[in-house]
Design a protein around this nucleic acid. Structure first.
Lengths: 245, 245
DNA sequence: CAGGATTCTCAGGCTATTCACAGATAGCCG
DNA sequence: CGGCTATCTGTGAATAGCCTGAGAATCCTG
């Protein structure tokens, strides 16, 4: 059975019906807080650790369903920590946070086992989506739900990143895809430009607020072109998506 | 079960039936008082703090269901305070008050956790509506009520900002929407022009008092047009809305 | 490292919205 | 019925908010 989270979206639950448990390991507390807030809002139970020792303690105690791990840690190398965590919970899926330029190949090796990674600076939408993907695939989440989001005749596949309207394939860039996913995860709800910026753009984005308008414009061109519009502007409030007619 | 507030509107209650508790943090006492009055009128229990230290103390003591936080504080940076509050009450929803132009240069991640914000100068209707939205979604309020307001065949959706009468969609501007929401939240009750002005227009509005008449006129054109009128004038007293016939 | 795709800035243009003003209208009282 | 006042609403100007084209900068890919 699917439950409904505070904000009305369907959420992932553990097989016994309790909320999914996530451990966040990051030494930058601002980042840890940001992540923790976003994940809690998904309806998940979150614990944060600022170093390896703490992370291990919580791992034993909480037995999380997923771990979000920044591999640059002060006291203990992230990889060492990973080993110890794996010792405790061999099956737990891990989402790595890593700096952009960090040795890609090493990470690539790490993610071979079904884990995943996200580079800093990331967007919350991206982290949440990846984490959902890991949980979905790991079987920690009871409902091994579909990866499809549907609004009217518009379909978005979170796994394959494919989007189509009325059966016709639509190519989107990465940013367009994330924006659309955010809209589609909140259908019929007005989302302000600030909310969208906070969620879809990375936390260190310092640019003009009108990128949102710009990308809405791009999306409309690809999604609404000719057809009955699904993306609507609520002047002075924000944007929302809903099935056309 | 839903109780009824002093003025007859349905109100949000905590799961145990006690009133919702809100903490207001603002160093401008005039604003804090204004807000406090408006929120008390909603039937909520309100405490105000003028600085970060006080806010923290009250947070521990009161354990509020929501926090209204001005991010420009004298003693402690609003973000620092936010972190500490989150430390005490990880799940508490926060409504930020911020200057108009601050939004432009970025309030990274503020709305990330389902929080929300309102720019100064705001209208009380806006603040109350946002706060109600946060409470509704956070689950602090027992009645996880619909976002729909209904009077007769007139329906207003606070999430999608959509209004319809007898199933027929009606487009309203932002100001029209707020005015109608205020009327609909107080059905069959006469609201004076002064009350409406105080509530729907921002506190620094310096214009002619007849904007209210003007916007009532706009609303009638859109809502009552042709149909049996729902918006009524009580000459010398104000306006009220009630189901037509 | 070239070519293409993508992201983003900037600025012009446009429309919806807000609001002031003032004349028209309607209720109320004698 | 006449006059007074409260309310209604047409007109139009100023503005805010949004949209989008052009192009610079950056990133990716082979």
């Amino acid at each position: 059975m699917k439950a409904t989270s505070p904000h009305g979206r369907s959420e992932l639950l553990r097989p016994d019906g309790s909320p999914v448990r996530v451990l966040v390991v990051d030494d930058e507390s601002a980042l840890a807080d940001l992540l923790s807030m976003a994940l809690r809002y998904e309806g998940w139970e979150v614990r944060t650790a600022g170093n390896g020792a703490e992370a291990l303690r919580i791992t034993r105690e909480l037995r999380p369903d997923a771990v979000l791990l920044d591999i640059m840690l002060p006291d203990m190398d992230g990889l060492t920590l990973l080993g110890r965590v794996r010792n405790e919970l061999p099956e737990v899926p891990v989402l790595f946070l890593t700096a952009k330029d960090a040795v890609e190949d090493r990470i690539a090796g790490l993610t071979a086992g079904g884990d995943d990674y996200v580079t800093k600076p990331f967007s919350l939408e991206e982290v949440v989506a990846r984490l959902r993907g890991l949980l979905r695939r790991s079987g920690a989440a009871a409902a091994r739900s579909e990866s499809l989001l549907t609004v009217g005749d518009l379909v978005l596949d979170e796994d394959s990143h494919e989007v189509s309207r009325a059966g016709q394939e639509i190519h989107l860039t990465a940013t367009e895809f994330e924006l659309l996913r955010y809209l589609m995860r909140n259908p019929r709800r007005v989302l302000s430009k600030a909310q969208i910026l906070d969620r879809v753009w990375s936390y260190d984005f310092g640019g003009q607020a009108n990128v949102v308008e710009l990308y809405i414009s791009y999306l409309r061109r690809k999604i609404d072109a000719g057809r009955s519009p699904m993306i609507h502007t609520r002047r002075g409030a924000g944007y929302l998506i809903k099935p056309g007619e």
